[in-house]
Amino acid sequence: MAAAAAAGAGPEMVRGQVFDVGPRYTNLSYIGEGAYGMVCSAYDNVNKVRVAIKKISPFEHQTYCQRTLREIKILLRFRHENIIGINDIIRAPTIEQMKDVYIVQDLMETDLYKLLKTQHLSNDHICYFLYQILRGLKYIHSANVLHRDLKPSNLLLNTTCDLKICDFGLARVADPDHDHTGFLTEYVATRWYRAPEIMLNSKGYTKSIDIWSVGCILAEMLSNRPIFPGKHYLDQLNHILGILGSPSQEDLNCIINLKARNYLLSLPHKNKVPWNRLFPNADSKALDLLDKMLTFNPHKRIEVEQALAHPYLEQYYDPSDEPIAEAPFKFDMELDDLPKEKLKELIFEETARFQPGYRS
């Protein structure tokens, strides 16, 4: 834990890192770190609560700039109880001085990944967590956004079992017609939660990839272990087919990539493993919904509104309290091709509203 900075004593240090967030945020305490930044909790002297502050230093890398800009653009436009918001952003007053960006968010005690390492969940908890994931996802999908990296560590939890989806750095506007060349190379989302079509096709992607990830998360809540822990690309596919069985001819016809289709045709026939054999203690309604989410063919996979209306979630289902976005989200430009200098300018502009004396 960093010592509390005395008023006016300059930035606090946390594990050798400068955290320049005073005077409003003090009493910093280390939480963890990701690929390009550290997260601390801090005391907000204005709202009198502890908050989470993520320090991001992305400006050396085009990919990190892209992810940072995506996350900020999306989260500043989203407003939903099951999606983490941005409360404040701290950065230098000029673009030349801006080396880091500090993002202030609600402090959540833990995440689903940490929880599943230590606790076996009751059916009631599984049901409530799944409902909140789908409630947040309904809003995301209504904005025409794909999260693309749903996994237990991106689901934040607090002691009252509130759940918030975080990390929109890989999110995209849904565009089933656009052929994202190089899709697989830039697709760094965790393999275990990846839909089979991501490994088999490169053309376009749809909201059904997020539903697949939610199915993987439900299976993990039922058993405290990942359902498809593939060691590499082909191993991942083999794990999936080992449980779902061989795809039907109709399902194979959806695979545009001939090499991928021929690979699947070359494999020995596998039978589907019954879900109640894998999860003998699970609620039968939970397994019915799991089956509809972990469907090989993305066109037959359940959609988020149908999933919310499934009998497993009937005690929570309330369409009048499951809000959607006001308007579909649009990125003005494809960020993939922009140089990091341009992305830095866009991050600077996007964060201006939090600067003292800002006038829109």
Results as ranks from 00 to 15, higher is better:
residue 313 L to Y: 01
residue 217 I to T: 00
residue 133 I to P: 01
residue 199 M to K: 14
residue 45 N to F: 10
residue 53 I to M: 12
residue 142 S to Q: 10
residue 220 E to W: 05
residue 18 V to C: 04
residue 48 K to L: 13
residue 81 E to Y: 05
residue 74 I to K: 09
residue 100 D to F: 12
residue 198 I to C: 05
residue 177 D to R: 08
residue 316 Y to F: 15
residue 99 K to D: 03
residue 135 R to K: 01
residue 256 I to H: 04
residue 181 T to I: 12
residue 62 Q to P: 15
residue 29 S to W: 03
residue 20 D to N: 14
residue 251 D to V: 13
residue 206 T to Y: 10
residue 252 L to W: 10
residue 351 T to V: 01
residue 108 M to R: 07
residue 12 E to F: 00
residue 170 L to M: 14
residue 347 I to N: 14
residue 297 N to C: 11
residue 62 Q to W: 13
residue 129 F to E: 07
residue 45 N to T: 12
residue 55 K to L: 07
residue 80 H to K: 02
residue 191 R to Q: 13
residue 172 R to A: 03
residue 216 C to H: 02
residue 253 N to D: 00
residue 142 S to P: 02
residue 289 L to N: 05
residue 17 Q to N: 04
residue 254 C to F: 13
residue 326 E to H: 01
residue 332 D to K: 12
residue 252 L to E: 09
residue 135 R to L: 13
residue 127 C to K: 07
residue 111 D to L: 05
residue 318 D to L: 04
residue 345 E to L: 11
residue 267 L to D: 01
residue 235 D to M: 07
residue 139 Y to D: 07
residue 10 G to T: 08
residue 191 R to T: 04
residue 82 N to G: 08
residue 118 T to L: 08
residue 126 I to N: 13
residue 119 Q to L: 14
residue 116 L to Y: 03
residue 263 Y to H: 00
residue 84 I to A: 07
residue 237 L to R: 08
residue 269 H to E: 11
residue 325 A to Y: 03
residue 332 D to I: 11
residue 86 I to Q: 11
residue 318 D to V: 13
residue 90 I to T: 02
residue 150 L to R: 00
residue 38 M to T: 06
residue 357 G to W: 05
residue 85 G to C: 15
residue 90 I to P: 01
residue 324 I to L: 13
residue 184 L to Y: 05
residue 240 I to A: 03
residue 72 I to N: 14
residue 102 Y to H: 04
residue 163 L to V: 07
residue 215 G to A: 10
residue 186 E to H: 06
residue 286 A to C: 07
residue 74 I to E: 06
residue 29 S to I: 13
residue 58 P to Y: 15
residue 74 I to Y: 10
residue 39 V to S: 03
residue 312 Y to T: 12
residue 308 L to R: 05
residue 73 K to Q: 08
residue 71 E to T: 11
residue 58 P to H: 15
residue 348 F to Q: 07
residue 101 V to Q: 06
residue 8 G to A: 01
residue 287 L to Q: 14
residue 327 A to I: 06
residue 274 P to G: 08
residue 148 R to G: 07
residue 29 S to C: 13
residue 87 N to D: 00
residue 71 E to L: 11
residue 275 W to G: 00
residue 266 S to N: 11
residue 342 K to C: 02
residue 39 V to N: 01
residue 2 A to E: 02
residue 170 L to A: 03
residue 86 I to T: 00
residue 188 V to T: 08
residue 162 D to F: 10
residue 102 Y to C: 05
residue 353 R to I: 15
residue 319 P to D: 08
residue 18 V to L: 08
residue 116 L to S: 13
residue 237 L to I: 04
residue 97 Q to H: 14
residue 120 H to I: 11
residue 330 K to N: 13
residue 106 D to A: 11
residue 343 L to G: 04
residue 72 I to M: 10
residue 158 N to I: 15
residue 343 L to R: 00
residue 38 M to K: 15
residue 84 I to C: 14
residue 62 Q to R: 14
residue 89 I to V: 12
residue 194 R to C: 11
residue 62 Q to V: 13
residue 177 D to V: 14
residue 156 L to E: 08
residue 137 L to Q: 15
residue 102 Y to V: 09
residue 47 N to S: 12
residue 214 V to G: 13
residue 149 D to V: 14
residue 324 I to R: 01
residue 124 D to V: 14
residue 184 L to H: 08
residue 92 A to D: 11
residue 276 N to G: 08
residue 53 I to Y: 04
residue 33 E to C: 00
residue 40 C to G: 12
residue 62 Q to S: 14
residue 76 L to D: 01
residue 187 Y to G: 00
residue 123 N to A: 08
residue 56 I to E: 15
residue 187 Y to N: 14
residue 195 A to P: 11
residue 263 Y to D: 03
residue 284 S to T: 14
residue 98 M to D: 03
residue 308 L to K: 02
residue 247 P to A: 01
residue 317 Y to F: 15
residue 300 K to W: 07
residue 253 N to E: 11
residue 77 R to A: 03
residue 12 E to K: 12
residue 357 G to V: 15
residue 158 N to H: 12
residue 147 H to T: 11
residue 93 P to H: 02
residue 209 I to N: 14
residue 44 D to R: 07
residue 198 I to A: 00
residue 289 L to R: 07
residue 326 E to W: 08
residue 270 K to C: 03
residue 285 K to T: 12
residue 151 K to V: 12
residue 303 E to M: 01
residue 333 M to L: 15
residue 53 I to G: 11
residue 11 P to V: 09
residue 161 C to S: 15
residue 327 A to E: 11
residue 306 Q to N: 06
residue 237 L to M: 13
residue 207 K to P: 05
residue 18 V to P: 03
residue 310 H to R: 03
residue 264 L to W: 01
residue 144 N to Q: 09
residue 135 R to H: 08
residue 356 P to F: 02
residue 152 P to L: 08
residue 340 K to R: 13
residue 347 I to G: 08
residue 4 A to E: 01
residue 210 D to H: 08
residue 62 Q to G: 10
